[in-house]
Simulated assay, not measured.
Amino acid sequence: MTALARAELTLLGRSRATLVTAVAVPLLLPLSVRSAIDGMDLADAGLTVGTVILPAAIGFSLLFAVYAALTSAYVVRREELVLKRLRTGELRDREILVAAALPASAIGLVQCVLMAAGGTVLLDLGAPPAPHLAVVGVLLGLVLCGALAAVTATFTRTAESAQVTSLPLLFVSMLGSGVAIPLELLPDRLAAVCELLPLTPVITLVRGAWTGELPASEALGAVAVALVWTAVAVFAVQRWFRWEPRR
Rank of each mutant, 00 (worst) to 15 (best):
L227S: 08
R242A: 10
V113T: 13
M1H: 12
R14M: 07
A216P: 03
M40F: 14
L28D: 03
I96Y: 08
Q238T: 07
S72V: 14
P26I: 03
L148N: 05
L196S: 05
S166R: 07
A209T: 11
C112H: 01
T71E: 03
F241R: 01
L19T: 14
L63T: 12
S35Q: 08
P187H: 06
Y74S: 06
L123M: 08
A100Q: 13
L199G: 02
A24F: 11
A236W: 15
V66G: 06
V25G: 06
L175R: 00
A5K: 04
V234R: 10
T10H: 11
L47T: 08
L205D: 06
E160Y: 05
P30V: 13
D44A: 14
A153G: 11
T200W: 00
G178R: 01
A73G: 09
A226Y: 02
L42S: 13
S177H: 01
A7Q: 10
F60R: 06
A73R: 11
T48E: 04
L197H: 02
A231L: 15
A149F: 13
L54H: 06
T158P: 08
G141V: 02
V136L: 09
K84G: 08
V136T: 10
R87K: 07
P103N: 02
L125K: 08
P198N: 04
E79Y: 01
V237N: 04
L47K: 03
V110A: 15
V110E: 00
L190A: 14
V193A: 15
A69P: 11
P30K: 10
A231M: 09
I37M: 04
D38C: 00
P26W: 05
A45E: 09
V234S: 06
L109S: 07
F60T: 12
L199K: 03
A56H: 03
V164M: 03
G126L: 09
C112T: 10
I107P: 05
T48L: 04
L144M: 14
T230F: 12
R85I: 05
R94K: 02
M1I: 12
E195V: 00
L214S: 06
T200Q: 00
F241T: 00
V76A: 15
T51I: 14
P168C: 08
S72C: 04
L196M: 10
D188V: 11
P168R: 02
A106P: 01
R85D: 12
A100Y: 01
L29F: 15
G46Q: 11
A226K: 01
T204C: 03
G208W: 00
A73K: 10
A100F: 03
W229F: 13
G50A: 12
M174R: 00
V234H: 07
L91Q: 10
L148C: 13
W240R: 14
V23A: 12
L12S: 10
S61E: 05
T165Y: 01
W210Q: 09
A99P: 01
A130V: 14
L102N: 00
Q238W: 10
E8D: 14
R94M: 09
R34H: 09
L9P: 00
L97M: 10
V121I: 15
A106I: 13
